[in-house]
Design a protein around this nucleic acid. Structure first.
Lengths: 198, 198, 198, 198
DNA sequence: TATGAATGAGGCTTCATTCAT
DNA sequence: CATGAATGAAGCCTCATTCAT
């Protein structure tokens, strides 16, 4: 590990680099994202890059963490007011998912597609925790009469199903016969149905 | 295109190379699968590789086609006898999925993980058709009373959900808290529930 | 050296290979003329090629010899009847040059362009001798009153000047502002003028 | 295009590489001039080569441009004082030609030999323009009484004739029966004679 | 002899990383 | 700290030639 940033300039540099990484991935794809390319986009020398990050992987890891936090935050802002139905909640989550996948020039899309080549542990942790907690709280509040068994399993299934179905759709967007809306509704139906099963 | 094989030896070589490719992907991952690596595993010179395939991509494409055919064949052998329930059908498909993902040293796992970097068109075609047909026939036979609307959408969702949920599980197998069995059952429940919705 | 052809079949094979070589050079250029390519055009295996020729260079050398003989023969047929003027003689030679360069899909053009990479010694010999003899005889017959001094030098200059000027012109034919005719006439004038100098 | 050099070191490197390229071509011939060979002669890693040039072709193009400029400059320094005869002018040009061809270990020789495989457009431009202008000016100044018709054609013929005759001679120098001097004089006679023709 | 599959040296190029300035 | 030039291992591919059948 390099020194962690301790000064103003440092933090800015770190930020610049992370943004450049994001931009590069979005524009050129993960495969074409090289350290020189990142440095160039950041308007900084490769050397500097290595002052702040141990290398490509460290940079990616940092980017993922940052994004995970952002997403986590965004998720927390899905209003869980009193009386909101499960269906509504899920609709909102999925809509947010689609808008993330379509945002940032496809950054998230490219990242999820390549999840297995990325240092995703922490990301998974962050999101997993968020969803687990949210779900647990929701069910405790609303459905204590028929508590969900196997919550972990169901969450695992739902999250992966939704995420990758969305990614696959977004990946063929232009040439797809399926509309985003119909897939969204299908997913919602499937998930709600599943969660309401004894 | 290279000359197509014209002799006994040739067909064998093609096979050797495809197997080496498969082995290499399984053992070392797609990223570390290079033409030299393949040639070495095949016990053959790089030159030979290029006598039979136009390059790395052609080799991959050929491998995928072959595997798609194999899988297609395997799927056709899922017995669809009279009176088999939808649940059973799906259970069998999923079980087959898991056994494929766990077979061949993880070859299928690695391939599905990297789907977006592979020349998957034909593969998708083969499988898509199989599932579409099977599903259509099944529902025509059993459920004409409440015909499934949006079959394409539902299949898209189900297939991707299942596939990637399984892949994600298999990818963390050793360290996962979730058992294959529980995920399998969850998926089956979810899918059956979804398909039986009006 | 391989065995020299001693049988019918052999001679034919040699011929087929030489023609294939010529064709290949004309169509694909010397740089893209590989032994496999030649064998394929000849409809013969690479192995056979090596039965008859020691390799690429031997093949080229043989081709050049053959062509040199052909050209030599053609040159001999330029009618040197009584009373033909020097100018006419040269015009005919140049016209023949242009028609060779434009013939055979550009084979000669490509060969002359690449003269320095070819085993040209013998070719040069053949042609050199032809021209020397012709010239000597011509001048002895017609101009003994003012015999050309430095015949070797003059021939060297004339031949190379003409040849490469023609080749250069033919090489840019399509995009050239200069017409073949005007260059031809210019060459003739220059050469005749030069030869008639004391 | 690579980044253009921005520092002292860079310009030096560019130079080193161009010189190494020149050296390599001169010593080993164009065919044996490979990127590894150039890098080795330059005493530099292959990678460096690619920091400065897009590849072999770019390197060649750059070398040619540089040499064209050098030659252009040299030509401009052929003194065209008042009263210099056409013959003298041509003698000087040819002498300069010979000395170039014999210089740099035969670099120019090898380059001209391979003209048709080189990116020669700009080179041709530079030289063509020089000669056209010089010739035009010369004839306007001295011979307006009998203006040369077909100047373009004559220049084309003269330049190519001279150049390739010289190259051919230089290519067989050691084994030739012809002396440089005699060929030089022959060329001069031929050219002057040609240019003075109505 | 004829075949053509197999070889492997050699050419081109990229990019993560280091290090002298 | 910042810089960016330099490195070199590693990937991709071609083709002249050999050799088992």
């Amino acid at each position: 590990m390099r020194k962690s940033p301790q000064q103003q300039r440092s933090k800015q540099m770190v930020n610049t680099l992370l943004e450049a990484t994001a931009k590069c991935i979005a524009l050129r794809g993960l495969d074409n994202t090289s350290t020189p390319a990142i440095a160039e986009i950041a308007g900084v020398s490769v050397g500097s890059l290595y002052q702040y990050f141990d290398g490509k992987d460290a940079l990616l890891a940092a980017l993922l963490n940052k994004l995970a936090l952002d997403v986590g935050t965004a998720l927390k802002h899905i209003p869980a007011r009193e009386g909101v139905t499960l269906r509504t909640l899920i609709e909102q989550a999925i809509d947010m998912g689609f808008s993330l996948l379509n945002s940032s020039d496809g950054l998230y899309l490219e990242l999820v597609r390549n999840w297995h080549r990325l240092p995703t542990e922490q990301v998974a942790d962050v999101l997993q925790q968020h969803f687990s907690e949210t779900a647990r709280m929701y069910f405790i509040k609303h459905f204590q009469q028929y508590p969900i068994v196997d919550l972990q399993v169901r969450l695992f299934i739902i999250i992966n199903s939704t995420l990758f179905t969305m990614v696959r759709l977004a990946s063929q967007q232009h040439e797809s016969l399926l509309s985003e809306k119909s897939v969204r509704n299908g997913l919602v139906n499937m998930i709600v149905g599943y969660l309401e099963q004894g």
